[in-house]
Simulated assay, not measured.
Amino acid sequence: MEIRKLRQLIRMVQHSGIMELDIHVAGEQVRIRRGAASALPPVLLAPPQTTITAPQLATVPASHSPAPAQQAQCSPMPGTCYLAPAPGAAPFARPGQQVQAGDTLCIIEAMKLMNAIEAERSGTLAAILVADGDAVQAGTPLFRID
């Protein structure tokens, strides 16, 4: 299925009241689930099947802005976020780990291209805000470095 059509389906799920969309077309299956990825059971994918989890949207009151030490590093592009260099490999970084500016924290796959996302500044990786394999949009918070 074309990435353009997948993006349209993801937007449709995000802006509607439905929690899950399952489509079967020409031998391909696409399942889009809305909600926290951690609340979902693990899914093993077979080649013609794809599962996409829509990212969670958080609202922050306009008067509240986090202190500079707690601002999140966000995704520069839409795509699929991978926290390790390969399936089953150790993650690039773990919460509590010291990172230096320029260290690779994850990879975002966009249009079959792998883009390394590097730490914008040095510090302690306080939190990883996405799960491995999550679909992210430009501006989606990925990490918090204190």
Rank of each mutant, 00 (worst) to 15 (best):
M1C: 10
I3G: 10
I3Q: 15
R4A: 12
L6I: 14
Q8K: 14
Q8S: 14
Q8M: 09
L9K: 10
L9M: 15
V13W: 01
G17A: 09
M19I: 09
M19P: 09
E20L: 08
L21F: 05
D22R: 14
H24L: 06
V25F: 11
A26F: 11
G27E: 05
Q29E: 11
Q29G: 08
R31F: 03
R31N: 04
I32P: 03
R33N: 10
G35I: 08
A36R: 15
A36G: 10
A37H: 12
A37E: 11
S38W: 12
S38M: 12
A39R: 15
P41S: 06
L44H: 07
L44P: 03
L45A: 14
P48W: 01
P48A: 01
Q49E: 14
Q49K: 14
T50K: 05
T50W: 03
T50H: 05
T51K: 11
T51A: 11
I52C: 04
T53P: 01
A54L: 04
L57G: 02
A58W: 12
T59C: 02
V60L: 11
S63T: 10
S63E: 08
H64D: 07
S65Q: 15
P66C: 13
P66G: 10
P66M: 12
P66L: 13
A69H: 15
Q70N: 15
A72G: 14
C74F: 04
M77R: 04
P78S: 06
Y82T: 00
L83E: 00
P85C: 04
G88T: 10
G88E: 00
A89K: 08
A89P: 07
P91K: 03
P91Y: 03
G96R: 09
Q97G: 08
Q97C: 03
Q98V: 13
Q100A: 11
A101Y: 01
I107G: 01
I108T: 00
I108Y: 02
A110P: 06
K112C: 02
M114Y: 06
M114G: 01
A116D: 10
A116Q: 06
A116M: 10
I117T: 01
E118A: 10
R121S: 02
R121V: 04
G123S: 09
T124L: 14
T124P: 04
T124H: 13
T124V: 13
A126C: 13
A126D: 11
A127D: 01
I128C: 05
D132L: 05
G133C: 01
D134W: 01
V136H: 01
Q137E: 09
A138L: 03
A138P: 05
A138Q: 10
G139E: 01
T140D: 00
T140G: 00
P141Q: 06
P141D: 06
P141S: 12
P141K: 07
L142R: 03
F143I: 00
